[in-house]
């Protein structure tokens, strides 16, 4: 059920501003790929291009091809909601629906898909919460508001919500940047477990995190403010962090800029 992602010359715009220029990369199924780079380098923009969330913003558009198992998700006859159902997303700030209980948050995606049967919802909710390592903490208070959990728990709730619909791919946009170290560790462990089932792409500002959780790493950068972001180097994580082929990558990971 995990799928391969191939980007061919993906170029994204916000109005007339070119945010990323011609990004091409192949992401293998059941792997963790980290996207790193300085602020404004377009790594989040690229991530949001993978599930067509980029185009939600006003005047945003995209060129190039993005194939999920060979199917270009930007084809005219592709249903954008189907793409997003296939590709789950976890955001920078935990964003459980504030009006919903823990249970309702987890099954929100299922309900959108038309699943109504209570027993099915309960079964999947438990499975998703267990996968997100949250079940033991919340099993006695599933009816309580999701917004009442701690930040780290909220983020795991959002992961449970994303995987409850059994997506092919899970995108994470700096999922730990708003969390304390212990919650961060919990999420990182979770990512390693989820890798067995899903293709995971994670944007992170934390290079140790990229080194810890990912199999492959893509380094994005910009020449100067206002220039589009480019994929500078994309390789096995071990190679990127020990022996990068591009000077700029080395400068970044050794902390010389960014």
């Amino acid at each position: 059920m995990a799928k391969r992602i191939e980007a061919h010359g993906v170029t994204s715009y916000y109005g007339s501003f070119k945010a990323i220029d011609s990004v091409s990369m192949t992401i293998e199924p059941k792997s963790v790929t980290a996207l790193i780079g300085p602020s404004g380098c377009g790594k989040s923009t690229f991530l949001r291009s993978i599930n067509r969330m980029h185009e939600v913003l006003p005047n945003a558009r995209i060129e190039g091809q993005l194939l999920i198992d060979g199917q270009n998700i930007y084809d005219r006859d592709v249903d954008v909601t189907a793409v997003r159902r296939m590709i789950g997303m976890v955001f920078q700030r935990p964003n459980p629906f504030p009006t919903m209980s823990i249970f309702d948050n987890v099954v929100a995606g299922l309900r959108l898909n038309g699943v109504r049967k209570k027993s099915v919802l309960e079964e999947i909710a438990e499975k998703a919460l267990r996968s997100a390592n949250l079940w033991n903490e919340v099993k006695d208070r599933l009816g309580r508001p999701g917004a009442g959990l701690s930040g780290g728990q909220q983020q795991r709730l959002c992961i449970a919500r994303a995987i409850a619909v059994e997506p092919q791919v899970v995108l994470m946009d700096e999922p730990c940047s708003a969390l304390d170290p212990i919650s961060t560790l919990a999420i990182e462990d979770l990512i390693t477990e989820l890798k067995n089932q899903y293709t995971i792409v994670i944007v992170t500002h934390n290079m140790q995190q990229a080194a810890r959780v990912s199999d492959r790493t893509g380094f994005f950068s910009i020449e100067k403010t206002g220039d589009p972001g480019r994929l500078i180097e994309y390789d096995d994580t071990a190679k990127i962090f020990t022996n990068p082929s591009v000077k700029k990558t080395e400068d970044y990971i050794t902390g010389r800029f960014g």
Partner: peptide
């Protein structure tokens, strides 16, 4: 964030409004 959460789950605009905006 809430609106994007709903959209990222694969909701249509109207479903997003029902899931995130109206509640």
């Amino acid at each position: 964030e809430n609106q994007e959460a709903a959209l990222a789950l694969g909701s249509t605009k109207w479903e997003m409004i029902r899931t995130a905006v109206i509640p």
